[in-house]
Design a protein around this nucleic acid. Sequence first.
RNA 1: GGCGACGUACCCAAGUGGCCUAAGGGGGAGGUCUGCAAAACCUCUAUUCGCCGGUUCGAAUCCGGCCGUCGCCUCCA
Length: 476
Amino acid sequence: MTVRLFDTLSGEARELEPLEPGHVRVYSCGPTVYGPAHIGNFRSFLFADLLVRYLRYRGYRVTWVMNITDVDDKIIRGAAATGIMIEELAARYTEQFLADARTLRMTMPDVLPRATAHIPEIVALIQTLLEHGHAYRTDDGSIFFRIASWPAYGRLSRLDPAQLRVGERVEADDYGKDDVRDFALWKGPKPGEPVWETAIGPGRPGWHIECSAMSMRHLGPSFDIHTGGIDLIFPHHEDEIAQSEAATGQTFVRTWLHCAHLQTGGEKMAKRTGNIARVAELLERGISPRALRYALISAHYRTSLAYSDESLAAAASAVQRLDALLGALDAYRQERPGDASLEALLKGARAAFEAALDDDLNISPALAALFELVRELNRRIDARSLSTADAACAAAVIRDLDRVLGVTAGEAPERLPDELVALLEARAAARAARDWAESDRLRAELAARGIVVEDTRDGQRWRRTGEGEQRWVNHG
RNA sequence: GGCGACGUACCCAAGUGGCCUAAGGGGGAGGUCUGCAAAACCUCUAUUCGCCGGUUCGAAUCCGGCCGUCGCCUCCA
């Protein structure tokens, strides 16, 4: 069994064969830190996270690089509008991004390179392109990539350069271009904009060049996987290929993976349409981060995903179903011989889970396999047909599969204040004495203090009421 | 205008020629279990896959047309 991934450039699914056997190098286009990212952005970051988690689950060593664009037109405008330095604005939203990423349990990339920390690499790349005749200067000190010098331009996006509509938003300072379709590698100095004094003159980097410079700096001139949103295919990734391959003469990226858009209200979630939701706002509304993560990763990455309050609620229920099972397995105690068919059940579920994800990260059948296992384990819990050791074994398998998904509750349960623990213990005692009136009174009292209690054959379990992060904790 | 994706139950969403009288999650309706509650389990909730033709022994799956939705075409994850 091998991992197959759908490559945008060739238009076909291909087996993953890392350049260096056993070691996969992945570059993901990360955020431009001009404001807080919305959850549509996070869909694409979490898709990359899922990829990395699965490859590691599969035993690959993975080097994952995600860039942070900390200088661009929007950041400059944003800083000017709020009267702060661009470094300050970028730092603020970089922090915000990292906080949101942690909230959503995104694996931390091995490297998070910032554009402003890679000016020498960017300049060197542009110098090479100038030397090879793929780039030219204009009067204002800008440097452009000459599309006409690169016949393969348009292959990734399947666009014919000759057919490209010339945008209406051509800036005044772009008039010096030889061809309106040429794109900026370096932007000449302008008042009020950051300027670097470099060997190619003063100015600042264009958007596309940073990804080429940073990916090749950290992963080499040729690497395995490059991810991003589908909207980056053109022009961003098309430009990356052109400038990188024109400079090195080598294949830039072996497999291009693109994540489809998050849809809400029937259209793409985008800042310009205003139909956005942000992680911090959802947290304030009491949404569980794990439910949000589940909602964003639970559909195949190449299909657009409908997001709504309803989809979020469905995700929350699905996550709670997993929580409830794990809680039940952890509390389960039964002296009896082991379940002879359990091993085959667990192996079968794992095999189905892996087969689905091997197939271009097809997560839907993987989740189906997981939930079929959940139902079967619940049946066996009800039937008391598992031994204590069986239950622990089953829980371990679920948690192992969750290394890929990252949606189950963490290991460290919350400690309740002593007075609430006392109430739980009093209730357990009342139940042991079959004093139902007292038991119900204590349940109501706990409920009034925000604690839901349930009774199982293996004792009480509790969790906090309301929205937000919830998990069942077994108690006696 | 050019290029592309998609249309499966109340919602989300797999399945891309026979194992489909169509996964899984959510929601809804009944039931079992339970002191009660919750959880869990069981049954039901698409004889049908946008519409119309065609190919085939056989199609949700292939082909053609039509209708509809969405995306990209130098801000974009």
